[in-house]
Structure formats: C-alpha cells, structure tokens
Amino acid sequence: MSALAGSAALALLELDASSIGPFLLSRPFVVGPLFGAACGRPWLGAALGAAVEAVTLRRLPLGGALGISAPVAAGAAAWLACGPAALAPEAAFLAGLGAGWAHGRVEAALRRLGGARVRRARAALAAGGEPGLGAAVLSALALQAAATFVVALAALRLGEPLARLWPLLPSAPREGARLALAVVPWFGAGRLAVSLARRA
C-alpha cells in the first residue's frame, strides 16, 4: 500500500471517530490489523494496534474531548512498521503516537473554527433564506478528511528518513523504546482489567 493510498484510507476511517457513527471502525484494534494486512504483516499491525489501544482506550471522548487521535496513531504506526519504510516497530509506535498527537491539535483547531458554519446557517434563516445544512455537513466532512489526509501523509512520508535515522541513535533510547513497546500493552491491560472489574 502506497503512502497516498494509506493516507486516503486513514482519512476515510478517521471520519468514524470524528464525524460518522461511531462504528469503532477507526479503533486501533481494527486499523492496526487492517493496515498490517494491507502491507503483508497483519500480526505486526495488530500488535501495534494493541499498543496504541492500550495508550488511548481509557481516555473517553466525553464532551468531545480530544487527546491522541487513535486511528491516526495506529494507522501511521502500522504503515511505518509494515510498509515499505520497514521502520523498527518501537520507532513506528512512537512516530504513530506523534502523528496522533499532531492530528488531535489539528482537529482542535478545526473545532474552534467550526462554529462559523452554525452562525452562517442561523444568519441565513434570519434573512429568510435556506440554512444550507446539507452543504455545511458535507463541507465539514470534506475538511475533516482533508486534514486527516495531510497529517497522515506527512507522517507516512517521514517513514524513510526515520528508518535511516533510527539506527544512528544511541542504543539507550532505542532499547528504551523497545522496552516501552513490550511493556505498554501489558500495563494497559492490567490497568484496564482492574478498573473495569472494580467499577462492575
């Protein structure tokens, strides 16, 4: 799967998290294996999806709260590790989280600007016109998908430079990142199991 195709797929899947549904098609447990399978390494994609899930699952989107974008993080991590860049999984995991964080900031900016659509609709009604609700919804979806596409493409394009730079880093941060990737899913699973059981 090329970077362009991966970014386009991620832009569509991310709409499930932000705009349509939700059907959970954008969760890392779907996106990780899907991107891994598209690049020929489904289990590595699934493992990275599980790691991103462990980081993002406990944060609930209450009141539209934004953190790391889970679909962008999982999709970027899986593509960087399983795709042509073949980045070390621990580096892909960190790069994916970075892409997810960047997407969260972009989406926050889109949400600050989004009130203008509602104001325009109210003004059109007050002037006796049509509010253009369908066009406003369509433009919001298109802008969201375009923003995700740009962030995802930027992250995926970083794959090859990162793959060249990563081995040049001192071994301590590389080993630390490897340990973090090995530990994160287990730590997250333990935390989640106890949290759910105590509140049951």
Binding site: S18, S19, I20, P22, G63, G64, R111, R112, L113, G114, G115, R117, V118, R119, A121, L133, A136, V137, A140, L141, Q144
Partner: peptide, 13 residues
C-alpha cells in the same frame, strides 16, 4: 458528530 464545534457542539448535525 459531523461539523462538531466548540461553540455549538453537535448543533449542526
């Protein structure tokens, strides 16, 4: 959720 904004939340949708 389409067009969610800080100002009007889900009003557009």
């Amino acid at each position: 959720q389409a067009g969610f904004s800080e100002e009007a939340r889900q009003a557009l949708g």
